[in-house]
Amino acid sequence: MRCFFVAVLAILTASCIGASASDTTIPCAGPPDKGASVAVHPGSQVSKTQDRQSGTCVFSINGAVATSPPAGQVLEAINFVRKPDKPMLRDPKGLAVALASLMAASAPVNQVPDELISALIRSSERVSACARGFFSSNDGKFNQPDQGKDDPITCAAAPTYSDERGKHEILERGEIAAGLPTLAISATWGSGRFVSTVYLPIVTPGQPPISAQ
Results as ranks from 00 to 15, higher is better:
Ile210Thr: 12
Pro84Tyr: 06
Ile185Thr: 04
Ala212Ile: 13
Ser54Asn: 10
Thr197Cys: 08
Pro32Asn: 07
Ser191Tyr: 15
Ser101Pro: 05
Leu9Pro: 06
Ala96Lys: 00
Ala14Gln: 07
Ala131Phe: 05
Ser37Gly: 00
Thr25Arg: 03
Glu175Gly: 03
Val109Pro: 00
Ile176Gln: 06
Gly63Gln: 03
Gln50Cys: 12
Gly94Asp: 05
Ile185Met: 11
Ala19Phe: 09
Thr24Leu: 14
Gly30His: 10
Arg2Pro: 15
Gln213Tyr: 08
Glu164Gly: 15
Pro69Gln: 07
Leu95Gly: 05
Thr188Cys: 02
Ala96Arg: 01
Leu9Tyr: 15
Pro145Leu: 13
Ser211Tyr: 11
Leu180Ala: 14
Pro31Val: 10
Gln147Ser: 10
Pro113Met: 11
Ile11Ala: 08
Lys167Glu: 08
Ala104Val: 08
Gly94Pro: 04
Ser15Tyr: 07
Gly35Tyr: 05
Gly206Pro: 03
Asp151Ala: 05
Pro42Ala: 10
Glu169Val: 12
Ala64Asp: 06
Ser124Trp: 04
Pro108Met: 11
Thr13Asp: 10
Pro69Cys: 11
Leu102Thr: 04
Pro31Ala: 13
Ala131Arg: 00
Cys130Ala: 10
Val198Ile: 13
Leu183Gln: 02
Phe80Ser: 00
Ile78Arg: 00
Ser191Trp: 13
Ser60His: 03
Gly133Gln: 03
Pro84Gln: 11
Ala7Phe: 01
Ser20Gly: 15
Phe135Ile: 05
Ser191Thr: 14
Gly43Glu: 11
Thr25Phe: 01
Val74Ser: 07
Pro69Arg: 02
Ser136Tyr: 08
Gly63Met: 04
Ala119Phe: 02
Ser101Glu: 15
Ala98Asn: 03
Ser44Glu: 08
Ser20His: 07
Ser68Met: 12
Ser44Gln: 04
Gly148Lys: 05
Cys28Leu: 08
Thr160Cys: 05
Ala158Phe: 01
Arg193Tyr: 03
Ala105Lys: 04
Lys167Val: 05
Lys86Gln: 15
Ala105Ser: 15
Asp114Thr: 09
Pro208Lys: 03
Thr182Arg: 02
Cys155Met: 10
Ser128Phe: 02
Val8Lys: 14
Gly30Arg: 12
Pro70Met: 10
Arg2Tyr: 12
Leu120Asn: 08
Ile61Ser: 05
Val127Gly: 03
Ala158Leu: 13
Asp163Met: 09
Gln111Ile: 09
Leu120Pro: 02
Lys93Val: 13
Lys48Glu: 13
Ser68Arg: 11
Ser15Pro: 00
Pro113Asp: 13
Leu180Cys: 09
Ser60Asn: 06
Lys34His: 12
Asn79Glu: 05
Cys57Ser: 13
Ala66Arg: 01
Pro152Ile: 09
Ile117Gly: 04
Ser211Val: 12
Ala77Phe: 02
Ser136Asn: 15
Val97Pro: 00
Val40Ser: 03
Asp163Cys: 06
Leu12Asp: 12
Ser47Lys: 01
Thr24Trp: 06
Ala158Pro: 00
Ala178Arg: 04
Val40Cys: 07
Asn79Trp: 02
Ala36Val: 01
Val195Gln: 13
Phe4Thr: 14
Pro70Gly: 06
Val127Arg: 01
Thr182Cys: 03
Met88Pro: 00
Arg52Gly: 08
Arg126Asn: 09
Ser211Asp: 14
Ser54Tyr: 06
Gly190Phe: 09
Ser191Pro: 06
Ile17Cys: 09
Cys3Val: 09
Asp163Thr: 07
Arg2Asp: 15
Thr56Asn: 13
Val38Arg: 01
Pro209Asp: 15
Ser186Arg: 10
